[in-house]
């Protein structure tokens, strides 16, 4: 019980704030709960496949396999795989974080993992088709081209700016994810 309270203290705090706001401003409070419910259901819809995939990935993919395809020596092939993996994803960016941690746990390289995160954030194919439908082909394609360059640069920047100690800390954190 104490554990529960400690882990969920922010959730509970926000809930209480929301309820207080709801009492003072019923319209805003109600809308807020409706938004929360809608978002919750939306995320709930994509959570089961993402996490089942995580579990399967952890059990079936050997570290050597991950190193071979996405590790430090994987080269351009690793980059392409990371980009593709991120691009076929569904769900918000923060759903990518636990997946990225499992990849790190299996010793994918930092660069490839951040390419994956970048791709998940902005070159997702489902979103891209939707972007083109809403904002036009030209808008979508110019932005996609920029994004591909940007993702690569950001991943290079992150992996370049980290020293050995930072790297070790990240891999160590990834060990405890599951």
């Amino acid at each position: 019980m104490k554990m529960f309270l400690k882990r969920y203290k922010w959730v509970l705090t926000l809930l209480v704030i929301n309820i207080i706001v709801g009492i003072m401003y019923p319209n805003i409070g109600k809308l807020s709960f409706q938004n929360t419910k809608a978002n919750f259901l939306q995320i709930l819809a994509i959570i089961p496949p993402v996490f089942i995939l995580l579990g399967l990935l952890d059990v079936w993919v050997e570290r050597t396999t991950m190193i071979k395809y996405l590790g430090k020596g994987a080269g351009i092939k690793g980059f392409a795989i990371a980009l593709l993996l991120g691009s076929v994803a569904a769900g918000p960016l923060y759903a990518a974080f636990p997946v990225a941690l499992v990849m790190l746990k299996k010793r994918a390289s930092l660069f490839n993992v951040f390419v994956f995160i970048g791709a998940w954030s902005t070159t997702k194919i489902p979103m891209f088709t939707f972007e083109i439908a809403s904002l036009g082909v030209k808008f979508g394609i110019v932005r996609m081209c920029c994004s591909l360059v940007g993702i690569t640069l950001i991943a290079l920047l992150i992996s370049g700016l980290l020293n050995k100690k930072d790297e070790d800390a990240i891999y160590e954190r990834a060990e405890n994810v599951i």
């Binding site: 704030i17 709960f33 579990g55």
Partner: peptide, 25 residues
Amino acid sequence: ALFKSWKSFEKILPQFLVIILIIGM
């Protein structure tokens, strides 16, 4: 694998909920 799926989900559930509540507000 499924046990691990559940455990890792349960681990980040509080963070998910906080984010969802903030977005809603």
